[in-house]
Amino acid sequence: MIAMFKQYLNAMRRNPMGLIGLIIVSSFVVMGLLAPYILTRPEDAWGLTYDVGKRFKPPSLEHLFGTDECGRDVFNRVLLGTRFSLMVGVGVVALSLAIGIPIGLAAGYVGGKLGTALMRVTDMFLAFPPLLLAIALAATFGRGLFNTMLALSLSWWPWYSRLIYIQASSVKSMPFVDAAKVVGLSELRIMFRHVLPNVLTPVITQATLDIGSAILEASALSFLGIGVPPPIPEWGLLVSSGWQTVSRAWWISFFPGLFIVVTVLGFNLLGDVVKELMDPRLRNLMAMRRMRL
């Protein structure tokens, strides 16, 4: 564990962009955790206030990011939004792993007709636009943080089960699996205790890489009005709240969007380093000679 951590640190030193990513991600995590304690106008942030006199004020020292159509301070709202965006990003990936890993493992390890059937179901979900799932869930259960996560996860997990499936179907014919069978371990135990740890690495790598994309897609759903409901200050929702007045009050949409870009950028830069570390082929390439062509 410590050796792995050291390896990470080394990789960071060699790859300054990864370091930038790490700094961005960790500062946003800290910001998301501490947000309720550093807000200067908590009522504005939670969207409880309405002040006609302060509507559409441009950025100033008093209101760093200006005020919105209800006279609320945009900076406070964006700050509080950090935790919701991060929560959705991590939540989507975690839920997708929870669905995708067992299905991919079962399909890959058991194989045969069951495997084929499971993978066809997976393909079906892959072809299903996340947009419609989000609408369906929003219409049946109402818009909400958890429903947004569920809608995205339902179209996200097939990627993980495919990855697990490919790995598991090659691992299952390895000698150690046969050995476990000879010893008389139950199939379930072999599947989860022996095959799973051997196929997990690429999926975990992919999952870290995906947190940024999950934040991006969740914000898109909120922008379209089928994700997180108001008055939760989710970033995509904040961008959409300034959409119609963008030509005279650009700051309402601009700053929340900028925060999305920086956060996702952080996750992507960090993900690149993790990927280079996890992929031995790429790791060799890092020490590669400079191209002479």
Partner: peptide
């Protein structure tokens, strides 16, 4: 990487 991190609805609006 920046391009892949930008929400399309935001950059479209901007």
């Amino acid at each position: 990487v920046l391009g892949a991190s930008t929400p399309v609805f935001w950059i479209a609006l901007v």
